[in-house]
Amino acid sequence: MATGGRRGAAAAPLLVAVAALLLGAAGHLYPGEVCPGMDIRNNLTRLHELENCSVIEGHLQILLMFKTRPEDFRDLSFPKLIMITDYLLLFRVYGLESLKDLFPNLTVIRGSRLFFNYALVIFEMVHLKELGLYNLMNITRGSVRIEKNNELCYLATIDWSRILDSVEDNYIVLNKDDNEECGDICPGTAKGKTNCPATVINGQFVERCWTHSHCQKVCPTICKSHGCTAEGLCCHSECLGNCSQPDDPTKCVACRNFYLDGRCVETCPPPYYHFQDWRCVNFSFCQDLHHKCKNSRRQGCHQYVIHNNKCIPECPSGYTMNSSNLLCTPCLGPCPKVCHLLEGEKTIDSVTSAQELRGCTVINGSLIINIRGGNNLAAELEANLGLIEEISGYLKIRRSYALVSLSFFRKLRLIRGETLEIGNYSFYALDNQNLRQLWDWSKHNLTITQGKLFFHYNPKLCLSEIHKMEEVSGTKGRQERNDIALKTNGDQASCENELLKFSYIRTSFDKI
């Protein structure tokens, strides 16, 4: 039985969820670079991206490699990797027998973001014989899940209580170790020597080791999670996991709180800001991140802002960003909400898709409305799209047979046209069989910064309504002859009103 693990408890099935942008060198404390989270699957090609990484700022997932063999891993080693800020997950990587050479110096898994409450997941690794993470000293947050690894031993010899604050939620089941077939031998045991430290858990006094050649490092209890030197002297209180010299914040392997210019500090002093819960960055760093993602459509890219001495992905609820200094300031009234469309555009074809934009005031991208039916549609669209004030790209209304009016965009005031449909149009209306009105132009103002209007096959939309939009939106004169079809717009509506004058002759039985 794995020490510190839980057996036999019912657990939810383990679901495996399925960018080499360097964020800056980590400095003297770390020998390499800070790398983003990685999802490495199918083959070993991307694994080489770990070569210079000291910190993975995010998670590391290595999974679904069915053609790899043990010899493929023999020359692979990433000794610079010290810390993973989120979680480490391995799933069905064939041929991998140990992690001792792959990650010989991995010391800390912070667990800032977890995989279903777990910071370390080893699942269905069919050839893994031992973990071998002999320098792993601290899992700051989260638990361990090690399950269905039929060859995995050296679990009962690990004292997880020396690595985690609590072992109650560890789930370590259905491994070879369960069948008591392992016969784990710690260093020196074969020669009758006791080389590794022994600890007591559940009444068992057991030597602690990761492999037959690597003991588990056990520091004096007084050192807590700070770690200790090879001689057993406690590291500085700002260290986490390990250090090369005692009581020196510049000799830590990793930091308990924050890293700044080669030393570990309790908090980031001005003019620095907390970033990702582990390091200090200056304003320029946060500003660069903001600008890199301002026009990016890459998933996970955030326009970072500053709030409460932190550089964070977005302002919290009730705050909006001051564009001059990136500071989050309290909103006066309802907060603006910028919604970034991942692929640059979004099609609204149902109430469900409209709900995804609920509360958005600025759309960074283009909207395509293609709704053919739905219950209580006008009210639903207004509830979900009615706060949109600005669209950076274009607005396209296409084959939306259920629409009679666009009044559900009740606050839309600006279409920038930074991206144009077919390279020309910022407003595009095609084949809307029941569209009769755009907006009530006596109450609604709309500016279209650039781009043209396109109207074709809107049989109940009168040309007068379209011409009014040209005047109000500032697009009059931009359109070419064929942009607004004269014969297919309003051709099934009563669009022309003329005053009919009647004269009559009164007659009676005795007068003409």
Rank of each mutant, 00 (worst) to 15 (best):
Asp72Gly: 06
Ser225Ile: 12
Arg41Ser: 15
Asn322Ala: 12
Asn170Trp: 03
Val281Lys: 01
Cys252Val: 00
Pro104Trp: 00
Val108Ala: 04
Glu124Phe: 04
Leu99Asp: 00
Asp86Phe: 00
Trp160Phe: 13
Val34Tyr: 08
Tyr134Ser: 11
Pro334Asp: 04
Ser77Gln: 13
Pro269Cys: 01
Cys243Asp: 02
Cys186Ile: 09
Phe205Ala: 05
Arg41Gln: 07
Leu120Met: 09
Ile146Gln: 03
Asp184Leu: 13
Phe258Cys: 06
Lys191Ser: 09
Lys217Gln: 10
Ser244Phe: 14
Leu136Asp: 01
Phe283Gly: 04
Gln287His: 13
Glu151Gly: 13
Cys335Ser: 06
Asp101Pro: 12
Asn308Gly: 05
Glu33Leu: 10
Leu332Val: 03
Ala230Met: 05
Cys243Lys: 00
His302Cys: 05
Trp278Leu: 05
Arg162Trp: 14
Pro187Asn: 14
Ile185Tyr: 07
Ser317Phe: 14
His212Met: 02
Pro220Val: 04
Phe103Pro: 00
Ser213Phe: 00
Ala156Val: 10
Pro316Tyr: 03
Asn105Val: 04
Arg298Lys: 04
Asn170Gly: 05
Phe275Gly: 01
Thr267Ser: 04
Ile306Lys: 01
Val34Gln: 04
Ile82Tyr: 15
Asp169Ile: 08
Val121Asp: 00
Glu207Lys: 13
Cys53Asp: 00
Met137Cys: 12
Ser213Met: 13
Phe275Pro: 01
Gly183Val: 09
His214Ser: 13
Tyr94Thr: 03
Arg298Cys: 15
Thr85Gly: 02
Cys301Asp: 03
Ile122Lys: 00
Leu164Glu: 04
Ile185His: 05
Asn325Ile: 00
Ser244Met: 15
Trp278Gln: 04
Cys239Phe: 00
Ser143Asp: 10
Gly232Cys: 13
Phe73Leu: 07
Cys234Ile: 03
Gly300Lys: 15
Asn117Trp: 07
Asp247His: 15
Val121His: 07
Leu326Thr: 04
Gly192Arg: 08
Asn322Ser: 13
Arg162Asn: 15
Asp261Phe: 05
Lys148His: 08
Asn138Arg: 15
Tyr272Leu: 15
Pro249Ser: 06
Lys80His: 07
Tyr154Asn: 08
Cys239Thr: 00
Cys235Trp: 01
Asn170Ile: 08
Tyr304Asp: 02
Lys129Leu: 04
Met125Thr: 04
Leu155Lys: 08
Pro313Tyr: 03
His28Glu: 07
Asp261Ala: 09
Ile306Arg: 02
Asn117Ala: 09
Asn175Leu: 11
Pro246Thr: 02
Pro220Tyr: 06
His291Arg: 09
Ile306Glu: 03
Cys219Asn: 06
Leu90Thr: 06
Gln276Tyr: 08
Asn282Met: 07
Thr140Gln: 09
Leu81Ile: 00
Pro271Arg: 15
Ile222Trp: 15
Cys293Pro: 02
Cys153Ser: 15
Asn175Ile: 12
Asn322Thr: 05
Pro330Val: 09
Leu155Gln: 12
Glu180Gln: 14
Val93Leu: 14
Ser143Lys: 13
Val167Asp: 03
Cys239Pro: 00
Met38Cys: 02
Cys196Arg: 14
Lys129Met: 10
Tyr259Ser: 04
Asn322Glu: 00
Asn242Thr: 09
Thr329Trp: 07
Cys223Gln: 04
Leu96His: 01
Phe283Lys: 11
Cys209Ile: 01
Ile146Ser: 02
Arg263Gln: 11
Thr250Gly: 08
Leu114Val: 08
Thr157Met: 04
Gln299Thr: 07
Phe258Met: 06
Tyr30Val: 05
Ile122Glu: 01
Leu120Trp: 02
Leu44Asp: 10
Lys129Phe: 07
Leu133Ser: 05
Thr267Glu: 03
Gln299Trp: 03
Ser112Pro: 00
Ile56Asp: 00
Phe258Trp: 08
Cys301Leu: 05
Gly241Pro: 01
Thr221Ala: 10
Ile109Met: 02
Val108Met: 12
Pro269Met: 11
Leu50Trp: 02
Cys196Glu: 14
Leu174Lys: 14
Asn179Gln: 08
Leu326Cys: 04
Thr194Asp: 06
Val206Thr: 15
Thr250Met: 08
Asn105Phe: 03
Phe283Ser: 05
Ser161Lys: 07
Gly142Val: 01
Gly111Leu: 02
Ala198Pro: 11
Leu89Pro: 00
Gly333Ile: 03
Lys217Ser: 10
Pro36Phe: 12
Ile306His: 02
Gly37Cys: 02
Tyr118Gln: 13
Ile109Tyr: 00
Val55Met: 06
Cys196Ser: 11
Gly132Ser: 14
Val55Asn: 02
Phe275Tyr: 07
Thr250His: 06
Gly232Trp: 05
Asn179Phe: 06
Glu180Pro: 12
Ser284Asp: 02
Ile82Glu: 15
Ile109Gly: 00
Ser143Ala: 11
Arg162Tyr: 09
Thr45Trp: 14
Tyr134Asn: 05
Thr85Arg: 13
Tyr273Ala: 05
Asn175Tyr: 05
Arg41Thr: 14
Ile122Asp: 01
Leu106Phe: 02
Leu63Cys: 10
Gln303Asn: 08
Pro187Ala: 12
Cys280Asp: 00
Thr329His: 05
Pro187Ile: 10
Glu124Cys: 03
Cys209Phe: 02
Gln276Cys: 03
Ala156His: 06
Thr329Gly: 12
Leu63Phe: 04
